[in-house]
Nucleic acid binder design. Sequence first.
DNA 1: ATGAATTACGGACCCCGTAACGATA
DNA 2: TATCGTTACGGGGTCCGTAATTCAT
Lengths: 279, 279
Amino acid sequence: MISYYELQQFVAFYYSGTLSAVAEQFHISQPTLTRNMQKIESLFGVPLFLRTKNHIALNESGLFAAKQAELLVHQTHEMFQRVRDFDKAQHTIAIGSCAPMPIQPLIHRISSVYPDITISSEIKGNHILLEKLEKDEYQLIILPTNPKNPSLFCQRIGEEHLMFCLPLSHPFAGRKSLRLADLNGNAILILNNLGFWSDIIKEKMPDSHLLVQRELYSFGELIKNSLLPCFSTDLTIKTFGIPENRVSIPITDAEVNVIYYLICKKENLKKFDVLFSQI
Amino acid sequence: MISYYELQQFVAFYYSGTLSAVAEQFHISQPTLTRNMQKIESLFGVPLFLRTKNHIALNESGLFAAKQAELLVHQTHEMFQRVRDFDKAQHTIAIGSCAPMPIQPLIHRISSVYPDITISSEIKGNHILLEKLEKDEYQLIILPTNPKNPSLFCQRIGEEHLMFCLPLSHPFAGRKSLRLADLNGNAILILNNLGFWSDIIKEKMPDSHLLVQRELYSFGELIKNSLLPCFSTDLTIKTFGIPENRVSIPITDAEVNVIYYLICKKENLKKFDVLFSQI
DNA sequence: ATGAATTACGGACCCCGTAACGATA
DNA sequence: TATCGTTACGGGGTCCGTAATTCAT
């Protein structure tokens, strides 16, 4: 019966043209190659080689067969890879989120429901999230809107409200609430990788200079040691508190008071129904 | 290294559900199956089975893998078949002809040029010939017209002229020439499987009753023992002569004085150039 | 108790590598 | 003469079947 290994040797012979080269490549002896090629030929049941006493080459059928064999070797390799990928997907949940804060509680919830599963998470823009959910690169995504797509299952999982975080000395520090437009034009400190928040802020405060910090540490230091405004939300305050000498002023723009939805494909719903029912 | 035999067993297990059934099916022992499935599992590198002490079944990944394996087994079979078909095609020329007479000389010519080749020939209608040439079901076809298709190579190989073959007592027996219309309405003897000739005759002599004979013998007997008109051509006369007590009168309709063309795909021309150059 | 899967064990056979040979450039 | 392919031969490993074991229905 034909083996994958021998087919590979046959394909290698197609490329290198001599048995000795293939033998070296596969770390086996030349006679083994002779025998394996004879075996291949008998399995195909048609002459594949042009033999002279000390030379062997593929004939027309052999050239055709080698190309076919190469295809099959490739298909075999792909089969193994697909099965491994499938198995990995069985034990992995990839989450995409529009914002950082809702991720942590969701991960905790998932790992308590499915203890043996690997969870990966990323922050991306809303449209990318939907695309990758479609392509099964994510199984779950978190969006700040309900996409109302009939093939998707969607459940509210929380909300988040953006605030300005101002030094006490700031002229607006005493306000009960603000609008994004009120600070448009001011330089503002923000963290990198805030997902959809960045998009909204750029849109509603087009004249502001956003001082993007990549590291949480330098961000914290700058907040402590500067009078620059920055943002907080009810969720960040719950987790990190309000920085010293600052106040948090709610922002009333509708776009920055969002409801988060957890979304999966309906076809995967049976896999996640326990999760959804617990939220 | 993976063998396709073991993959087949794996697929068989997917269908039968027990190792013993597969063992029986493949005429091998149960322990061998156990080992081969363990080997398959280790080659995939992921768990494929749900095992209890005396039961084994496929898990989710196993079901997926079995379907993938079935595909691959199928592709393997197809590969072998394609190579065998290719090899057969290397040693076979299938000819399609619009008429019987040009075939024999062509076959003789081919077998002298390519002594080791198998030749098959069929008579079909013109449009079918072109279709099957396109699909590589024929490598060569003979048509009574030049198709003027830029992807086809076409060379004149001969001509044939239809005649009425009339008993000496027939009123038209003394004519120098006739037209098909002259005998329209008369019953006429013809042989079966005359290719495009039948089509022309039916079209130009719509009122004639065609007495189609399947066998050459009964056709010959009827010619000898009846006064019914029939057809001959310059080529049939060259091969078989003119029947006793009959004369052959040329027919002047353009459609029945044909030039034969031998046609192949231009992409196959290098294979046949020796043949074409000899004609 | 029957039947299914696995493990243990012994032997056959297959397959590999070394060596020898033949042939060609 | 060096290289390449094939054949010969001997040993080791693999793979198979029988037998034994365990478990479940």
